[in-house]
Write a protein that binds this DNA or RNA. Structure first.
Ligand SMILES: [Mn+2]
Ligand SMILES: [Mn+2]
Ligand SMILES: [Mn+2]
Ligand SMILES: [Mn+2]
Lengths: 216, 216
DNA sequence: TAAAAAATTTAGACTTGTCTAAAAATAAAT
DNA sequence: ATTTATTTTTAGACAAGTCTAAATTTTTTA
């Protein structure tokens, strides 16, 4: 099949494609923690395998075959994260690095059985959708809490920043997936927000409000 | 830590050490499906890391550090096999190849939690002992059914051949781990054996009798 | 115990994936 | 529309792991 390195490139390109239609060499290099020259080498290999569309200097897009592989890796990543949290009781800020390794386990039958074992979860611990075995998922439309006005509310459904420190902060503030929040005030001076989270009042910075997402 | 290749070499050396104190280059090459020249290269690297004791032309033994790593990989392999059979309902002949990949997942915390999740199993689906987190396990003494005389009996506790075809054959004959068997007759002509397995009578070849193990 | 056979190691080469430094192309700024 | 800055690609090198073919060592056999 594909090497571990190839899989990581395809996954990175997929994620970057969500923000930009054409993904640049430098973007990939930054995402994957390598140098641009290394990326160029790999892009040639992936293009040879017809997993990406690549024109020199013009950036890349995934072909259907490439996207299918990327989605399968993401499916595995998110199912293993769900397993680690729901079955092995890890916290949501602890599972990403382990899933980075587990997503490369190749057996399709294994991942389908794991999916069934957990009763076909639709979202991972961070609120991200889990593709089914055919790569399909309903992409829920989300928006940042920062876009709300006073007295508007929503249900926390995702995060834009997956770093452990951010996730730990949210956990401490009880700002976790599924919680309903209401904006009770916005401080004009710094655009920070006062939230009502169930029966708790919390004050979050603009920065946090931009990275915490609610269902539309 | 150690690379995937290094881990596979250490594991192979460990398994071969159970039969011979000094493990030869050719034995390793056969076990790992490589050429002797490649093995020699790797032995030098492992010796540099002080994971094996290596003297040119004399074969190798594991150091304590090397054995510890090997046992940890074997622990992971067998725990994942147990998981696949007990939680995901795979058959005992289907899990080895998947475990060959999963045994390289690095997190120690993950494997300890998996161990706890399954309530600290002592043996994998093939009857092999699962080392604890310190590498300790009680090596059960086993002997082949072939060593029994007429009217002697024992409990099936392991296999000497782990190939899917052998395991499938055993499954079909109900000759699975935990079953009590009694030798009711031995055919002198070919040394094949008639077994009573609970309320079923089965006829097995000498070859099979040598590879099916019972607790002493 | 000397010759033959088998096992092991060395030498040199190849692939994958990475890097630095330099060249080329594109984009931005005057 | 040039010049300047940024991005991307090429050139050449390196480490890990493997291979074949040849040399060396050990073991076996006569
Ligand atoms: Mn993740
Ligand atoms: Mn996630
Ligand atoms: Mn196995
Ligand atoms: Mn096993």
């Amino acid at each position: 099949m594909n090497t571990l390195a190839e899989e990581n490139y395809l996954k990175a390109i997929y994620h970057l494609s969500l923000n930009d239609t054409n993904v640049s060499t430098n973007q990939i290099a930054a995402a994957i923690n390598t140098k641009a020259a290394s990326v160029t080498d790999m892009l040639k290999k992936l293009a040879d395998k017809e997993l990406i569309n690549y024109e020199k200097y013009q950036g890349v897009t995934l072909t259907n075959a490439g996207e299918k592989i990327a989605l399968h890796i993401i499916r595995k990543h998110r199912l293993w994260e769900y397993f680690l949290v729901e079955k092995l009781n890890f916290k949501w800020d602890e599972v990403h690095e382990m899933a980075e390794e587990m997503e490369h386990i190749s057996s399709v039958e294994l991942i389908d059985r794991l999916d069934k074992f957990m009763d076909y979860p639709k979202h991972d611990p961070h609120g991200d959708p889990i593709p089914d075995r055919d790569g399909n998922f309903k992409k829920h439309e989300l928006k940042p809490i920062a876009s709300l006005n006073v007295n508007e509310s929503g249900v926390i459904s995702g995060v834009r920043d997956h770093s452990p420190t951010f996730l730990q902060y949210l956990e401490k503030q009880q700002l976790t997936i599924g919680k309903k929040i209401t904006v009770t005030d916005i401080i004009e001076y710094d655009n920070s927000m006062i939230l009502q989270v169930e029966n708790i009042t919390t004050h979050i910075s603009r920065e946090v409000a931009k990275n915490l997402l609610i269902a539309i």
